[in-house]
Amino acid sequence: METNEKISDSIAKKLAGAAHSRIFKITTAAVLFLIIITGVFGLGMAVGYRKANFSYNWGENYHRNFGGPRNGFFRQMPMMFGSDFISAHGTTGLIIKIDGNNLVVDGNNTPEKIVVVSDKTIIRNGQQDIKLGDLKIGELVVVVGNPNTGGQIEAILIRVFNSK
């Protein structure tokens, strides 16, 4: 009985020593680093997929939304430093056209997008909630929403900044 206790104590001490060893700490740090980097990579892939998908839909439906070549302009868009696929879940820019429930928002050096306003869309200017009819052409807006298959953004929130 005492011998078994001594053996278990010695094993416990060895395991405790191993847990504090340099190799154990390095291995733990390496595994943690791999987990973090894998998570970041997955997040990047998820965001990139959504942007690419929306960019494709935007290009394929450009002639329906804005008029133009039937094949769309997507393949002709140059990829410059710092620019990549179109953001799918929001946009920032000036309102250049209001067509019924649709707004056309033109970003600064970014492609114009159609924002679809529904009954659930919150439109705010300062501390007040406003309606679609209160929006004017030339106002700077920030839109957060969901992309649809037609290359448009279904707005959840529209905030008006300084009008120009």
Partner: peptide, 25 residues
């Protein structure tokens, strides 16, 4: 977009996934 988290925090909290994706994009 980040400013919206402070100005419209309730609306952003209700749709935090779309806001997060919008910010990351």
């Amino acid at each position: 977009i980040l400013f919206l988290a402070f100005s419209d925090s309730m609306a952003i909290l209700a749709n935090w996934q779309d806001f997060a994706l919008s910010f990351l994009e």
